[in-house]
């Protein structure tokens, strides 16, 4: 049996795709979801995205308040405005979800991601790699005679750009944390 060829960028379609959308324009939103730190919460959130066909571009989760038993899930998602509103409403329904904030629309926010890069190379490549790392304010956290591990913090775009530059210089492996985000200003 031969496997089916899936077109690049193809998504599954159902009858429900016949519905009109209020706007076809896809937007990227960063959602901060404060949840009860209980087993199963993350699975519930991910299951919602899988079950209802929403996108997850990035997902970060960790406990943020040990005594209060709270975790923060940061999700970067893309969808039409209508879909984004649905996602927020669906997340808000969960019993374990305390708060859903859309950092993209609720005023200015900062987003950061941390990434580790393993770059392998000697000679000119090695020198160029460390020069670029300096420009990007990446730190060397491990070094051998043929390799570096760089640590870099910044927006996803900055990390993408760094990855692109490292590619010809012997990039072997990347580990990224996904986006962490907070609103700017004094109000929590």
């Amino acid at each position: 049996m031969s496997p089916l060829k899936i077109k690049k960028g193809a998504t599954s379609h159902s009858a429900y795709d016949l519905r009109p959308t209020f706007s076809d324009k896809e937007e990227r939103h960063t959602l901060a979801v404060l949840v009860e730190n209980e087993p199963g919460v993350l699975s519930r959130v991910i299951g919602l995205f899988a079950g209802r066909g929403y996108n997850i571009d990035s997902l970060t989760v960790a406990e943020v308040d040990h005594l209060g038993h709270r975790s923060r899930i940061t999700i970067v998602t893309t969808g039409t405005p209508q879909t984004i509103v649905q996602i927020k409403a669906q997340l808000g329904r969960f019993v374990d979800v305390h708060k859903v904030n859309d950092l993209t629309v609720e005023g200015p926010s900062v987003e950061r991601e941390l990434a580790l890069f393993k770059v392998h190379g000697t000679g000119e490549h090695r020198i160029e790699a460390i020069r670029l790392a300096d420009i990007f304010r990446a730190n060397v956290v491990d070094s051998t005679l043929e390799s570096f591990v760089f640590e870099i913090t910044g927006t996803s775009e900055k990390i993408d750009a760094f990855a692109e530059l490292m590619q010809p210089l012997g990039l072997k492996e990347i580990a990224r944390t996904g986006v962490a985000a907070l609103s700017r200003g004094s109000v929590a």
Binding site: L18, R19, P20, A89, Q90, R93
Partner: peptide, 30 residues
């Protein structure tokens, strides 16, 4: 629900729609 609306782009084309619901995710869903 889809059993109610039939074809969505031709659903009650000229009306103002009010919706009372306890579930926010039901409002503006379709």
């Amino acid at each position: 629900d889809d059993r109610i609306t039939g074809r969505l782009d031709a659903f009650s084309p000229g009306s103002t729609k009010a919706h009372i619901d306890i579930d926010a995710s039901s409002i503006n869903k379709v």
